[in-house]
Design a protein around this nucleic acid. Structure first.
Length: 372
RNA sequence: GUGGAUGUAGCUCAGUUGGCUAGAGCAUCAGAUUGUGGCUCUGAGGGCCGUGGGUUCAAGUCCCAUCAUCCACC
């Protein structure tokens, strides 16, 4: 079968690790590296589809766990699939629920068969097996589905991490067997916690199954950043050069830059929208908490030089006022800005790879974002 | 004018038969947030308890006076 989601590599950095490309999907071609805004419940919180388009997003995330519980994947299927249901004609990737299993903590029980858990909404009991999760994701109908995996906690001992990654590999086989292909691509997920040998083993296991793309999971769960970077150094070389690589759950500007430098093509993260709702925004000079009193009379845009809707039309003082007053427009503007910031940054990274200036771009940008 | 009620943090109020360094919510200030359990979490500052006397080992608490505000009655 011809894969419906493919990566075309356009240009590489001098060391050959970072790449600029195009991700071809049934819902459009997406320049990579790419940041994917998270729209857990069929909505990128506070931001409408036309606003997402305007700020340059080409692909967003949805979440199996949430959409299964509410409103139910069967309804989404009857509505014509998630694209139609939420009126988004760009590409969509659905996360499998593996991470929610991790974050649900004491509400779940993990066995070889799958994961038993209780709904955070009404406490009802449910069972997610790899087969069931494939059924749900096919009904939702995103362009890219993810394998059901176990995201090991951090810290986590070597024995647990080994067993967990091995089970994730067995689950990946079951996912593959249960997934009928069609227009939807299925990505595998590399696990292995913070152990180099397990990362390499997990990558090899996944690659042997021949997925059209690979997620790297289990990182950015509390480990130091240099540990995450060294895990990428171990993992990426084990993955096929012509397939997309997706670092799951990473979205701070410094980590995006370091991820791309190590060969990552795709990222997703709630960080930009979550910190936006709490009054923090990205700027070319680092993060600022625009909710702070220091900006009460600051009549400049959030980030001078930014071309987003918020920066073209409003001042820090006004947006701070909206945030303090609890006006919904405030968190909408900060959300739009932060998403635009990351989308634009990825565009700049891509351009720098293409014109050969990635190393300089990385150095300059790193100075701003190091430990920020 | 008479009778009553109330005065504690910026605001709204707790504060036991007097007994640790007078508390809470909101507000203010600062920080956190990384495959989202949607308005979260953590921390900080801020009070001569209306004022002045008295009783007592000890008073936000009891007594007296006084001021302010509110209510009722003349």
């Amino acid at each position: 079968m011809i894969p419906t989601v493919t990566l075309e590599v356009v240009k590489r950095s001098f060391d050959g690790r970072a790449r600029a490309g195009v991700l071809h999907t049934p819902h459009g071609d997406i320049p990579t590296p790419v940041f994917m805004p998270v729209g857990t419940q069929a909505s990128v919180k506070t931001v409408s589809p036309d606003e997402l388009r305007a700020l340059g997003a080409g692909i967003i995330l949805g979440n199996t766990y949430h959409l299964y519980l509410r409103p139910g994947h069967d309804l989404i299927e009857r509505a014509g699939g998630l694209h139609q249901f939420m009126s988004w004609d760009g590409a969509i990737l659905t996360d499998s629920g593996g991470f929610q299993v991790f974050s649900l903590g004491p509400l779940r029980k993990i066995t070889e068969r799958g994961v038993e858990f209780r709904s955070h909404i009404d406490g009802s009991r449910h069972l997610f097996t790899p087969e069931r999760v494939m059924e749900i994701q096919m009904a939702i109908g995103a362009d890219i589905a993810m394998c059901f995996d176990e995201c090991a906690p951090y810290p986590c001992d070597h024995d647990y991490a080994r067993e967990s990654a091995a089970m994730t590999a067995r689950w990946a086989q079951r996912c593959l067997a249960a997934h009928n292909g069609g227009r939807q691509a299925l990505f595998g997920i590399v696990q292995g916690s913070v152990y180099a040998d397990l990362r390499r083993k997990s990558a090899a296991d996944m690659v042997s199954l021949g997925f059209p793309g690979y997620g790297i999971g289990g990182l950015s769960v509390g480990e130091p950043k240099d540990v995450m970077y060294s895990m990428l150094d171990e993992t990426v070389p084990c993955l096929p050069d012509n397939k997309p690589r997706y670092l799951m759950g990473v979205g701070s500007p410094d980590a995006l830059l370091e991820g791309v430098a190590r060969g990552i093509d795709m990222f997703d993260c709630v960080l930009p929208t979550r910190i936006a709702r709490n009054g923090t925004v990205f700027t070319r000079r680092g993060r600022i908490i625009v909710r702070d009193a220091a900006y009460a009379e600051d009549l400049r845009p959030l980030d001078p030089g930014c071309d987003c809707y918020a920066c073209r039309n409003f001042t820090r003082a006004y947006i701070r006022h909206l945030l303090k007053a609890g006006e919904v427009l405030g968190i909408r503007l900060t959300s739009i800005h932060n998403l635009r910031y990351l989308v634009r940054m990825m565009g700049e990274i891509r351009e720098s790879i293409i014109d050969g200036s990635f190393d300089e771009y990385r150095k300059e940008t790193w100075r701003v974002w190091y430990n920020n």
